[in-house]
Simulated scan of single mutants.
Amino acid sequence: MTYETIAQVEDLRAMLARGADVLVLDCEFDLGDPDRGRALYLEAHLPGARYLDLELDLSGEVTGSNGRHPLPARTAFAATMRGFGLKSGQQVIAYDGNGGIYAARLWWMLRWLGHGAVAVLDGGRQAWGDADLPSESGEPGPVREGDFMLGEPLVGQPITAREVLANIGTGELQVIDARDAQRFAGAPHPLDTVSGHIPGASNRFYRDNYDANGRLKKPAELAEAFGTALNGKTPEQAVLQCGSGVTACHNLLAMEVAGLKGGRLYPGSWSEWTSDPSRPVER
């Protein structure tokens, strides 16, 4: 069986027990303390897991006008993943301790490379610990380079700031902002140089995608919530954004689980949008 959206702790435990060919990747990160993710990984991680850093591995070069976490080139990211041992068709299970937001970024990016066998561990690090399953610590041993090769993207082409700007006039697409309601409304926030949101955007806070136990909500519940955020548009007309193109991927994952496929990512998101003062802002 191949997992392409989420996998449960029991699924991963069974895979590891039978020696399945699975690549487990720890995506822990802290925007306020960029070194903390690796420190937590070294302290304890799932058996065999390797660590991917949001800013070093899952982002490209920051120029000051392309957002805080721009996408790397597809070819460059494919090389990165080969360096982590990724093989063509290999099952990938990604996790973190933050509700899956950083793991979802990896999920989307691997699908962007054409790799479909990737899933986010539902409940992440906490669910693994709650099941009283073993962990490891320290640096892993060397890895043999994988044979992964780029394929046709399994996601829609990322949206550009120019396309988002044009859409303000046409209204053909529905932008959905994953930030919390206060930031969306215009409350100051240390991560934002300008407060507010893209004109015409709706708001779906990514944390509302999971329950009190950190597990993703049921598909029907997610479908109802995103149906409201779509404002009558189809899933294919959705543009998902956030502060820097990370938590928007969690909304894309939740939509996929809900059967609402075809939404596209605006990778630059609010941090790119506000780097140009000529772009309009709504509060």
Score class of each variant (00 low, 15 high):
Ala20Lys: 04
Glu163Gln: 15
Thr75Trp: 09
Tyr102Asn: 04
Leu16Gly: 05
Arg162Leu: 12
Asp122Met: 10
Thr193Phe: 04
Arg215Ala: 04
Arg82Glu: 01
Glu172Thr: 14
Leu191Phe: 09
Val281Ile: 15
Ala103Gln: 01
Glu145Tyr: 04
Leu154Pro: 06
Ser65Asp: 14
Asp96Leu: 01
Leu191Met: 09
Gly146Gln: 00
Met1His: 12
Leu154Tyr: 12
Pro153Gln: 10
Leu42Gly: 00
Leu86Cys: 05
Lys217Asp: 07
Gly124Ile: 14
Arg50Asp: 07
Ala79Gly: 08
Gly141Trp: 03
Lys261Ile: 13
Ala258Lys: 13
Ala39Val: 14
Cys242Ile: 07
Leu16Ser: 03
Arg207Met: 08
Thr193Glu: 06
Ala20Asp: 15
Arg125Leu: 15
Thr5Gly: 04
Leu253Ala: 07
Arg179Leu: 00
Gly124Gln: 12
Glu55Val: 01
Ala73Thr: 08
Val143Asn: 10
Asp26Lys: 01
Ala229Arg: 04
Tyr102Val: 01
Leu42Lys: 00
Leu133Ser: 15
Gly67Val: 07
Glu152Arg: 14
Gln157Trp: 11
Gly186Pro: 05
Ala17Trp: 03
Leu23Ala: 13
Leu252Gly: 12
Gln182Tyr: 09
Asp132Asn: 15
Trp128Asn: 10
Leu165Glu: 13
Glu139Tyr: 03
Thr160Asn: 04
Tyr206Ile: 03
Asp26Cys: 02
Cys27Gly: 02
Leu58Pro: 02
Trp107Asn: 10
Ala14Pro: 05
Glu224Ser: 03
Lys217Ile: 09
Ala201Arg: 06
Pro72Ile: 11
Tyr210Met: 11
Asp26Ile: 01
Met81Thr: 00
Ala14Gln: 12
Glu172Arg: 15
Ala212Gln: 14
Thr228Leu: 11
Leu42Ser: 00
Ala187Thr: 04
Val9Glu: 04
Pro34Trp: 09
Cys242Asn: 10
Leu240Lys: 07
Ala104His: 04
Pro267Tyr: 13
Gly85Pro: 07
Ser135Ile: 13
Glu221Ser: 08
Thr274Gly: 02
Lys218Leu: 11
Glu55Trp: 00
Asp53Cys: 01
Pro34Leu: 06
Gly123Ile: 02
Leu46Thr: 01
Lys261Gly: 11
Ala223Ser: 03
Gln157Phe: 11
Thr170Asn: 06
Arg204Pro: 02
Lys87Trp: 09
Ala220Leu: 11
His115Asn: 08
Val118Ser: 15
Ala49Arg: 10
Gly83Val: 04
Arg68Ala: 11
Ser137Arg: 08
Thr63Cys: 02
Trp112Glu: 01
Glu28Gly: 00
Leu265Ala: 14
Pro142Ile: 09
Leu110Lys: 06
Leu56Asp: 13
Asn209Met: 03
Leu265Val: 12
Leu253Met: 12
Gly227Thr: 05
Glu145Phe: 07
Thr170Ile: 08
Tyr3Arg: 10
Thr160Arg: 08
